[in-house]
């Protein structure tokens, strides 16, 4: 099964990736090969097999709903491109 340019563009949009025309053409070719490669799984008889979501047979551990971290917002925001008064700035969302 191979993918076409529109499908790849749709996937890129879902993944929030802007691709150049060249990247898109290359992705059509390489993603098609990957999808063909993994498609061999469809041949396997998996009737009655439970999907394995986790490598160990264990239950999800829960912790008490308590505050365990101190607020270090300013320090964490040192890695942000643009902040103001503790808020992250992005291009205008509402007109």
């Amino acid at each position: 099964m191979s993918l076409d340019k529109d499908q790849v563009q749709h996937i890129a949009t879902l993944a929030r990736l802007k691709l150049s025309a060249e990247e898109c053409a290359e992705s059509v070719e390489k993603l098609s090969r990957i999808v063909e490669f993994v498609a061999q799984l469809s041949q396997v008889d998996t009737r009655g097999v439970l999907p394995m979501a986790h490598p160990l047979e264990t239950a999800q551990r829960l912790r008490a709903d308590a505050v365990i971290e101190v607020n270090e917002r300013d320090r964490y925001q040192e890695n942000a491109a643009e902040v103001s008064d503790g808020l992250y700035l992005v291009p205008k969302v509402l007109d």
């Binding site: 396997v44 998996t46 999907p51």
Partner: peptide
């Protein structure tokens, strides 16, 4: 077809 199937094969 892909993700659920792969999780089943992972179990195998």
């Amino acid at each position: 077809a892909y993700y659920l199937k792969a999780q089943q094969v992972r179990q195998l």
